[in-house]
């Protein structure tokens, strides 16, 4: 299972800098990032090449962090493909808790990062429907 690093941050000038600085210093490469926030605080979600190392680096820096299992699903880079994939999960009563995506590789393949209620079941369903799940080593 691929792991995503989630970081809590107060919304203050310089905070993003400090957070990305931790990963840079630890020599951890960011593959994708999503920032959700309101006026006061937010959560940064990082998909990185070495989540354990990134997680440890944040902990050492005293930053509130958690490591979460996510699914990374390859989808075709064309209209409707994300909708199809999410629909497949919805039909089987899998709750999507969070979702973001990025485009990777020379073939410009879409990669969707999913936090779901039941990762193991979601994985099975997606595989049954022919989706390719991308392992951490391939990212």
């Amino acid at each position: 299972m691929v792991k995503q690093i989630n970081v809590f941050s107060e919304d203050q000038p310089g905070k993003l800098d400090r957070i990305t600085g931790v990963l840079a210093d630890a020599n951890v490469n960011i593959l994708a990032v999503k920032i959700s926030s309101d006026e006061e605080y937010g959560v940064f979600q990082f998909l990185v090449d070495d989540p354990e190392k990134g997680f440890r680096a944040f902990k050492q820096a005293g930053i509130t962090v958690s490591l979460k299992d996510v699914l990374t699903v390859g989808v075709e880079n064309k209209p409707g493909s994300l909708h199809h994939m999410l629909d497949t999960l919805r039909k089987d009563n899998i709750d999507i808790e969070d979702c973001h995506g990025f485009v990777a590789g020379r073939e410009k393949k879409g990669i969707i990062v999913l936090e779901v209620s039941d990762p193991a079941a979601a994985r099975r369903i997606l595989e049954q429907h022919g989706y390719s799940l991308i392992g951490s080593s391939e990212l």
């Binding site: 995503q4 989630n6 970081v7 809590f8 959700s36 926030s37 309101d38 605080y41 937010g42 959560v43 979600q45 509130t64 962090v65 958690s66 979460k68 808790e97 969070d98 936090e115």
Partner: peptide
């Protein structure tokens, strides 16, 4: 202050 052990990275849960 948040208790680090209880943080699971979900903004909606924080809300």
């Amino acid at each position: 202050e948040l208790y680090p052990k209880m943080f699971d990275g979900d903004l909606r849960k924080l809300k």
